[in-house]
Design a protein around this nucleic acid. Sequence first.
RNA 1: GGAGAGAUGGCAGAGUGGUCGAAUGCGGCGGUCUUGAAAACCGUUGUACCGAAAGGUACCGGGGGUUCGAAUCCCUCUCUCUCCGCCA
Length: 423
Amino acid sequence: MIDPKLLREQPDLVRAGIQKKHLDCDVDAILQLDVERRQLISETEALRAQQKAANADMAKLPKGTPEFLEKVGEMKSISGKVKELDGRLKDLEDEWNTQLLNVPNLPDESVPEGKSEEENIEVGSWGEVPGEKKFHVPHYELEWLDEILDFKRGTKVTGAGFPFYVGDGARLARSLISFFLNEASEAGFEEMGVPFFVNAESATATGQLPDKEAQMYETREEGLYAIPTAEVPLTNFFRDEILEETRLPVYRCGHSACFRREAGSYGKDVRGLNRVHQFDKVELLKWVKPETSFTELESLREYAENLLKKLGLPFRTLLMCGGDMGFTNCKQYDLEVYAVGQKRWLEVSSCSNFSSFQSRRAKIRYRDSETGKPEFVHTLNGSGLAVPRVFVAILENGLQEDGRIRIPDVLVPYMGKEYIERK
RNA sequence: GGAGAGAUGGCAGAGUGGUCGAAUGCGGCGGUCUUGAAAACCGUUGUACCGAAAGGUACCGGGGGUUCGAAUCCCUCUCUCUCCGCCA
């Protein structure tokens, strides 16, 4: 949520931000609601003050005396009026809140203008894009793929987009998770095991609701949501809390399965592991003081980039333009790894600064030592990394002329072997 | 799943219709004393909203109701604990 005061005091700034994201929301309607709301609050509170004063007087009077009864009569009408205004106020505040929740986070000045992914800016790259050889194939065309990945049976057992990982495939996925977690721990991110389902409050706090409800799986009986990323439970860990300033910054990481319905994206990039409904990911989270969040974003990005360097996978880093970045983001980098078989860049990490957008929704604050007041922390998160597409890049880039798949050196200790090969 | 008990400020714990935002203790912060520390003593110690300010209002797990007035009574939901059953 953006700061309602900012909206009130600098609506043009907010309008410009919304426009930069190529989104649409009615700022004037919110401002109008705000005016009405504040008017109603003043009226209601004045009446309530009157009521309170009368109550104090009545407490001193003996019950049942004529004066007492007179007061009761007097107060009855005020009581009714208060109830009426209260009801109206509640409706108004609900509406105001709902509309505020639909205002996106405002993009930072450094975010480039642009409407779609074509206008993202490449801000860095590493590794050589391998020249395509004739034995290079997209992973989903690898003849013996079903020895490590079984899509067909996944479809039978669950549905499309829920593959089985088999044998060395399962081992590779697990190796990646372990590697990512170990690296994160070493870099100072405390490891967390997280719930894979969250309630509606949590999903709202991180911005999945109400914006992206259609993208989440929901349990019928309890109304819980399967997490689309560990970001949701991790961020909500501190929901409704005030942290000690000395505790900041807090760095944490967690592995989870991620569940995404990917409604509306059928037919696009869906082959093989490129886009699946359930995948593993290690997520990194930072809770920081506001003035540090942009430098924290840079170090988060560098951390994620280093993982790809250690894996020896060529990648590029994109600074997302206003129109292509997330609803909740203030600034966002995407890391894309090159998969030579498909001759495509695949997104494997997204590193974002949410500024106070999530923390305001989640009420995560810290006590500022200078002001002595609770202030909203800034939250950041980044994938470190998503497993399937890294898996894909290892398969496609690591494929040798002899048909074996070379495992990156850093994963060899986890895999216990240097190559995956056909049985 | 069955039966019962409970949810109050950072924590512990009083309060069962009327100046209760809430006693008391602990903890925290500031001070006195001390060479320093401890102890002792004194003071202080929630959040949000409205308001230019003065000030006002709300919040005793969530929501609803009764009442002139609710932490206190009623309904409902959630959660926690104890016992029984079932189970990884």
